[in-house]
């Protein structure tokens, strides 16, 4: 499955946009007839300058906005068929990461991650099992009892990724996850997202960092003024590349092993 080209077999797509348009009240076109599909366990970048519609795609996917035209399917389900009451349950299947982290400032790292499980009605025992696991995965085991304002930007972003991933959602959306971070920290975050992708989770990352995207050689959707202007699902990269190889390419742009 994972080696199928992205353009075929829409039934297998996790995300499918067909002729989706959205115009904001101020007349600005958020999206204009966008059509694309993203395969299961794919890692896709969405690039474009500010106002090109990247965030609109994200907000449509978590049903924060409704399109005026077109059909959006997530895992085969038409989003317009989800009622307002069902939205919270739908969102539990999607992890979301934002540029500004959106952590709860009055909770510790542990509680921030645990909150996503409390919301879904997990028992305390499950929470005690799952939270340390995901914090280990994201390298935050030593920061358990810190509050968000005691952490660096990269650490805060890793907390927000931990929170997004603790439910093991089939889909992870990241809207400018490295927008506030320095290049080295950005690589850490990308590596973490890639590691999550390797567990089978479909990852969609919006960014305006062309350089980083070029180095990573993943599938790239480019948006400009609400239109898809480029969709490169080329076979330039190996799908089953190890995280280590992935990172080394990020650092250097070639295949030299990295020195961590």
């Amino acid at each position: 499955m994972p080696n199928q080209p992205a353009t075929s077999a829409p039934n297998n797509a996790v995300i499918e946009f067909r002729g989706v348009s959205l115009r904001y009240d101020n007349g600005h076109a958020g999206l204009d007839q966008a059509t694309f599909a993203i395969e299961r366990s794919d890692f896709v970048f969405m690039i474009g300058s500010t106002g090109s519609g990247k965030s609109t795609v994200m907000r449509l996917l978590i049903k924060e906005l409704e399109p005026q035209d077109g059909v959006i399917r997530v895992a085969g389900r038409d989003l317009s068929s989800i009622s307002r009451k069902q939205v919270p349950f739908y969102r539990r299947n999607i992890g979301v990461v934002f540029q500004d982290f959106k952590l709860l400032p009055n909770r510790t790292v542990y509680d921030n991650v645990a909150y996503a499980l409390q919301v879904t009605g997990h028992s305390r025992r499950e929470i005690r099992e799952k939270v340390p696991d995901v914090l280990r995965l994201t390298g935050l085991s030593t920061k358990l009892h810190n509050y968000p304002d005691q952490l660096s930007g990269g650490e805060q972003q890793r907390v927000s990724i931990a929170r997004a991933f603790v439910n093991h959602p089939p889909l992870l959306l990241a809207d400018e996850p490295t927008g506030n971070l320095d290049p080295e920290t950005s690589i850490d975050i990308m590596r973490l997202l890639y590691r999550i992708n390797r567990t089978g989770t479909t990852v969609l990352v919006a960014t305006h960092d062309h350089a980083m995207v070029d180095k990573m050689r993943r599938r790239v959707l480019e948006l400009s003024q609400g239109r898809i202007v480029r969709d490169e699902a080329t076979g330039l990269y190996q799908r089953d590349e190890s995280t280590r190889e992935f990172v080394s390419r990020l650092r250097t742009g070639d295949d030299r092993p990295d020195g961590i």
């Binding site: 978590i62 009451k85 919270p88 349950f89 739908y90 969102r91 539990r92 979301v96 959106k102 952590l103 709860l104 400032p105 009055n106 909150y115 996503a116 919301v119 879904t120 929170r163």
Partner: peptide, 16 residues
């Protein structure tokens, strides 16, 4: 309000 926004994003129901 930010706190409420986050709660909604992780899938908390209105009554929760």
């Amino acid at each position: 309000r930010r706190e409420i926004e986050v709660m909604k994003l992780v899938g908390a129901t209105d009554w929760f």
